[in-house]
Design a protein around this nucleic acid. Structure first.
Length: 578
DNA sequence: GCCGTTTTCGGCCCGACTGTTTTCAGTCG
């Protein structure tokens, strides 16, 4: 059983305990344990094997035993008991907005409701009326909520969310009533998908701002409209929350609404041990009630005795401990990147010619840019034949004469064939400056076969970077089954880099995996995989993923100056020969 | 159920909004 599967079981236990109205702190313990398992970079089986389960934060004797059960038998007896008591469908009721554990329990006990369908039928027949605390308005909200569940409240990929959110920010920031505005929540933490947009504003006229916000053309529906807080449903389906605070609270509110919830809980615990109280209005002395900080986030963290923690790290994944011990990482910045090591042209499936790509890279003041079109087996992507590749290399060498401060690197995104051989022979690869290798076929191979295939590719002396290592497409295609630990070990052994592919639909490696790669001492390459010129801008998403993975400049090959990069690419070839 | 510079018991983050109440519970973030 994998980390995520056990986390899921713990979350299910927490759901069931909520319906049973159990001790809230016990429930929180399960949720926290689940969270920590999700962000654990090491395989849980390996941790268990060396007896380290209770070293994981939030895992004590009891939960360690339950993890043991899950690993040994594939099930947790306690969960089985709970499941016998409360049907699955009752838990699913809580997915309906407005229905929480209390309502689910009430519906189950009074009316034996154990599915969303049954609830919908009863609501329409008017059978819900008369239950304690439920009147017409609540029934209307339940019916509406059921429609939302049925449509599926999917998470939106960050790459799609950011432009939509920016549109709203731009509409609001030009208002005279708006002083400051910032994105918050998972958008600001740059999670790969978001479930809603959180926006924060300072204004002295909150009512007016609320009015304008709720009547934006993007607002398909107004869900909440209070004095300082409003929620709309965006016409693209996603929820947008807006909070208005006074300028003196901006930092505290931004800290609060950026989250994550788990990070904030830890921050507040820490504060309360120091006799401080933290809310969205500021940091207050418990004793005197005096406000000690609030205008800026830096000030808020400082008041609690912490250095500033970048939003991307705020997941309660070790950043609080690191902050306390003064070992927060120096995170990668967009400006640290000196070039792009994965880009296509219309020689294969790109939509611009070679010169246009190079010009665009030049405008971005890159020190180098690669041309890495597909190899011959990728026929749907018009992969290059050996002859065409040789011809392209010639053009690249010629084009290089035109530029003094930009180096065009000859490369290839070379298919890893089903048996782990490369799609071009070594004598061809040897002529390239940088070679990426990637899986583009036979995604359904078994774990052992796929792992051996990629490991073999990484042992090829002419290969430098493993592109989109898991092949996942967010919301569309699952990653292929591969043992990443073995892949990272091979990359480390042969001195290869693994990619964070910055395509919005890929972000592959993801933040967790990239963090693990870094921990194991594997170099990363952050690339856009550009097919249209404007996709060069996706680098921000790759950098965000890297930052969420605690990655700094020194972990990244394309943060190296050209000479160092070329030395690395040579070295990787030499080392592979050993 | 976890945890410890309040250490083996007694804590465990905090506030807005809604719908139901008539002072608050439930939900959400």
């Amino acid at each position: 059983m994998r980390n995520l599967e056990i986390a899921k079981l713990f979350n299910e236990i927490a759901d069931l305990l909520e319906i049973k109205d159990e001790n809230v702190f016990k429930i929180r313990a399960y949720r926290r344990a689940a969270m920590n398992l999700e962000s654990l970079t090491e395989e849980i089986e390996a941790v268990a094997a060396r007896g380290g389960l209770t070293e994981i934060a939030g895992i004590g004797k009891d939960l360690a035993a339950k993890i043991g059960q899950a690993l040994d038998r594939g099930r947790i007896e306690y969960l089985e008991e709970l499941r016998r008591e409360i049907p699955r469908g009752v838990v699913e009721l809580m997915a309906i907005p407005g229905v929480g554990p209390k309502t689910a329990k009430l519906l189950f006990e009074k009316l034996q409701v154990d599915s969303v369908e049954k609830l919908e039928a009863l609501a329409q027949e008017g059978k819900l009326l008369g239950l304690p605390g439920i009147k017409q308005k609540t029934i209307e909200n339940i019916v509406k909520g059921i429609q939302v569940v049925k449509k599926g409240r999917e998470r939106m990929p960050l790459g799609r969310a950011l432009p939509l959110a920016r549109e709203i920010v731009q509409a609001l920031e030009k208002l005279p009533q708006v002083k400051k505005i910032s994105m918050a929540g998972s958008l600001r933490r740059m999670r790969e998908t978001v479930r809603d947009f959180d926006l924060l504003i300072t204004s002295t006229k909150p009512a007016k701002v609320m009015e304008i916000f709720t009547s934006l053309p993007q607002a398909a529906e107004v869900l909440v409209h209070g004095e300082t807080k409003a929620t709309i449903r965006h016409r693209e389906g996603i929820q947008v929350d807006l909070r208005v605070v006074e300028p003196g609270c901006f930092g505290a509110a931004l800290q609060y609404f950026t989250g994550s919830k788990e990070h904030n809980i830890r921050v507040r615990e820490l504060a309360s041990r120091k006799g401080l109280k933290v809310s969205e209005y500021g940091v207050f002395s418990e004793a005197t009630g005096k406000r000690l900080a609030g205008a800026t986030e830096e000030e808020v963290y400082r008041a609690i005795g912490l250095p500033y923690i970048p939003p991307e790290l705020r997941e309660d994944a070790g950043e609080i401990e690191a902050a306390l011990e003064g070992r927060l990482p120096n995170l990668l910045e967009l400006d640290d990147l000196r070039g792009d090591l994965h880009a296509h042209t219309n020689w294969s499936d790109g939509h611009h010619d070679l010169e246009a790509l190079v010009e665009a890279a030049h405008r971005k003041r890159y020190e180098y840019v690669i041309v890495s079109d597909h190899s011959r087996s990728s026929t749907v992507a018009h992969g290059l034949s050996e002859e065409r590749l040789i011809e392209q290399i010639g053009q690249i060498r010629a084009l290089n004469k035109k530029y003094t401060n930009l180096r065009i690197l000859a490369g290839s995104e070379c298919d890893i064939l089903a048996d782990g051989r490369m799609d071009f022979p070594d004598r061809v690869l040897a002529q390239l400056d940088i070679v990426l290798c990637a899986v583009h076929s036979r995604f359904k191979q078994g774990r052992a076969e796929m792992t051996a295939r990629i490991v073999k590719a990484l042992s090829n002396p002419y290969v430098h970077i493993l592109a989109h290592p898991t092949g996942r497409l967010i919301g569309e295609r699952d990653p292929y089954d591969v043992d990443l630990e073995a892949v990272f070990a091979a990359a480390k052994q042969h001195g290869k880099a693994v990619e964070i592919n910055a395509q919005p639909s890929r972000l592959d490696l993801n933040d967790h995996h990239a963090r693990r790669a870094k921990e194991l001492g594997v170099m990363l390459s952050i690339d856009t995989d550009t097919h249209f010129l404007d996709q060069l801008e996706n680098m921000t998403l790759g950098v965000a993923t890297a930052r969420r993975a605690w990655i700094g400049k020194s972990d990244v090959v394309n943060a190296m100056p050209l000479e160092k990069l070329l030395a690395w690419s040579d070295k990787s070839r030499r080392e592979s020969h050993k």
